[in-house]
Design a binder for these strands. Structure first.
Lengths: 110, 110
DNA sequence: CAATATATATCGTTAAATGATATATGTCAA
DNA sequence: TTGACATATATCATTTAACGATATATATTG
């Protein structure tokens, strides 16, 4: 993708999207991985490398923030800014689906 | 994105998604660029570098095929296989939106 | 005739995702 | 108790995707 940072455009990658969604409730990394696999019913899974790389990026962009931290577990939660970008991205994705449905004969697919 | 070819996973990138959508009607590259900008009302634009790189990839994967070709313009159209992958991808994207709406309080956003 | 739009193409760079791998603790059954 | 497996975090190096910059050529039009 790339050459232009997706966050600077206010767009989320699929992985960022699901990680932010997971952190609407405070969780630590390992739980995030499990959560993503669960809500997508296995359609998407994020391994530790992707996980911690993306967590770092989201922290840096202040879309998530650290919390308490029980022992060596590090908890994170979405920020106000993160939630705002997430809801915008849901709308962007909804618009893509609507664009497609308008062109394909998929009006009945809902 | 990466490290595993998205097409091998049967997933389309945003750019591939819109290019395939454009080619549900036969068009040449330049028209595809304009079409994408139009249907997205400027939300997304694809420049020539991305355009021709992706066209090549879609041809190679047989999701699109060349057509007649009026003069030096090269026309392409989606294949049966391409249409099948595109409709699957619309469903995948719709599922992502639904996952998000189930978790956020966005039920009324439609 | 010069500027702009149409049309296609490639090169090299940046960013994203992740396989592989490492480390450490906790849990549980043989 | 020890070996296997789950929990938990972390980094490195590689592959793929997207695209800015740039080049080329023709057509249109003011």
């Amino acid at each position: 993708m790339p050459r232009t940072d997706s966050l600077e455009l206010g767009e989320l990658t699929d992985s960022m999207f699901y990680i932010l969604l997971a952190l609407t409730t405070p969780r630590h990394g390992y739980l995030v991985m499990q959560f993503v696999e669960e809500i997508t019913r296995g359609r998407m899974q994020i391994g530790p490398a992707s996980m911690y790389t993306i967590i770092k990026k989201l922290l840096n962009a202040e879309l998530i923030e650290p919390m308490d931290g029980d022992g060596k577990k590090k908890n994170y939660q979405i920020t106000r800014k993160g939630r705002s970008i997430l809801t915008d991205d849901v709308k962007r994705r909804q618009a893509m689906v609507e664009d497609a449905c308008a062109i394909l004969d998929m009006e009945g697919s809902r």
